[in-house]
């Protein structure tokens, strides 16, 4: 099954290697990995998505915690959460056929963020399947895609689950059956609520 882990790690050299190396050691392929600053000073937030057996979740989380620079680990598993990915896509387009791509972008709620004589850049945020949908459609025409840059998934639990609250609750992160508040109805226009 697909596992999604959120790790808060100390922001210092080599920490990402330690995290990545753990997955290599466990012979688990990382699907995507995103890192950035978090709400906690000095701590970065990593979202790791990987494929592993259902039982592996516990061991991965426990092993992540064994890394000295890892401060908090949440295993999202089936918990209600929002997952997004950012993609920048550069497409070959001349003034003649631009309008067609504009329309496509409109349909996918993507934005055009750069325009050059022979190409344009699309920025799109959404769930993985939506981004894949856009890429597929763009690929249907002639060789239009020049470059794709995807951020990998970022995930956050729904409801009032800040990492601090989670930690205080201790067991909550452990037991994903216990859910947060119900996911609110489509808050963000066009945002698909995750099927899970």
């Amino acid at each position: 099954m697909t596992h999604t882990f959120i790790a808060y790690v100390e922001d210092m050299p080599g920490v990402l290697t330690r995290v990545a190396s753990l997955f290599r050691r466990l012979n688990i392929n990382i699907h995507s990995l995103t890192v950035g600053h978090s709400e906690r000073p000095g701590l970065s937030r990593i979202t790791i998505v990987c494929e592993a057996s259902a039982e592996a979740g516990h061991r991965i989380r426990a092993s992540l915690y064994k890394l000295e620079n890892v401060v908090d680990v949440d295993d999202i598993a089936q918990a209600p959460s929002v997952t997004r990915e950012l993609a920048l896509i550069k497409v070959a387009a001349t003034p003649k056929n631009r309008s067609q791509i504009f329309e496509l972008a409109e349909v996918f709620r993507a934005r055009i963020v750069d325009l050059a004589p022979e190409s344009l850049m699309i920025e799109m945020t959404g769930v993985e399947s939506k981004i894949e949908g856009l890429i597929q459609v763009l690929n249907e025409g002639e060789d239009r895609i020049l470059e794709i840059c995807r951020s990998g998934k970022m995930t956050m639990r729904r409801g009032h689950h800040t990492s601090r609250v989670l930690r205080a609750m201790g067991a909550a992160a452990e037991d994903n059956a216990e859910s947060g508040t119900e996911p609110p109805e489509n808050l963000e226009a066009g945002a698909a609520v995750e099927p899970q």
Partner: peptide, 8 residues
Amino acid sequence: VDPAEINK
């Protein structure tokens, strides 16, 4: 003492 050993 090592949680990673449980059910391994």
